[in-house]
Design a protein around this nucleic acid. Structure first.
Length: 242
DNA sequence: GCAAGGTCCTTGCATGCCCC
DNA sequence: GGGGCATGCAAGGACCTTGC
């Protein structure tokens, strides 16, 4: 199965190189990730506009190194140069600056070319189109994500979402976790926490109001979930971002 | 795709801290 | 003192995994 094979390629590359990487599709959505934490560092570091620009450049350049001001480096290359519609790999963050080796994975710049060769060598069998992957899992998962994106402020039950998709709930759980590496609950909470960040930055509503408005049923559970995902309480996050 | 059992998520409450 | 928030805990139920 292509999706599983892609996952294996990324896992093998990660085990060999100790560099986190993710695969993004043409819509700049991360559909597979290896070695990253939540919240995803890519989404915190590169905007969708930047990713779109970088993906466009792949039609001329086979390899793009994108260096941020703080020294974090991302390397972008096509999943398969013959089939740019498959999307691309984003490798990193890492650094080529030896002075930052204590805070970021360090790789000399000249090594990256060889590591990309290794990545392509592992994944040389990828010649099918991404649509086959989508048909297998991502069609239903994408629909589920859209549903959560629209209805995050309301109570979302597994039953409701599974019947919306026309799937049995246990089967839906299986494919959702396979595609996102997260349970349906965790993903929903992650979306709600991300939405709450904007409201916290505005700094007008109380924590309870924000919790209720993004779909949490209590401030207590909102606090617990927010701290688990972000690493700080909602109040601490607000104080840091106002 | 379904069923069953175990897991753990979610809720509600209590308590304590901090600030006004 | 009162309001807002953080933290911890127990219990019920929703969810996930496994086997088919």
């Amino acid at each position: 199965m292509l999706y599983t094979e892609l996952e294996n390629v990324m896992e093998n590359f990660y085990l060999c190189s100790h560099l986190a990487l993710c695969a993004i599709n043409k819509n700049n959505h991360v559909f597979l990730s290896m070695g990253h934490t939540i919240p995803h560092p890519l989404e915190q570091s590169l905007s969708k506009e930047t990713l779109a620009t970088l993906q466009e450049r792949l039609s001329q350049d086979s390899l793009i190194h994108h260096v941020l001001e703080d020294g974090r480096t991302f390397t972008i290359c096509a999943i398969n140069p013959k089939y740019l519609e498959l999307g691309c790999f984003v490798i990193g963050p890492y650094t080529t600056d030896i002075h930052l080796k204590n805070v970021l994975p360090f790789k000399p710049a000249h090594c990256m070319v060889h590591l990309i060769d290794l990545l392509y060598a592992i994944g040389s069998s990828f010649t099918q189109t991404h649509e086959e992957v989508e048909e297998e899992y991502n069609y239903h998962v994408s629909k589920a994500k859209d549903y959560i994106e629209i209805h995050y402020a309301e109570p979302i039950t597994l039953d409701a979402l599974a019947s919306y998709l026309g799937l049995h709930k246990s089967y839906f759980c299986t494919i959702f976790k396979k595609a996102t590496k997260q349970s349906f609950c965790s993903y929903t909470n992650m979306v709600r926490v991300e939405k709450s960040k904007d409201l916290l930055k505005e700094g007008t509503d109380s924590i309870l109001e924000i919790a209720l408005s993004v779909g949490f049923s209590s401030a207590s559970y909102f606090n617990t979930t927010f701290k688990k995902l972000v690493g700080m309480t909602p109040i601490e996050y607000r104080n840091q971002n106002i």
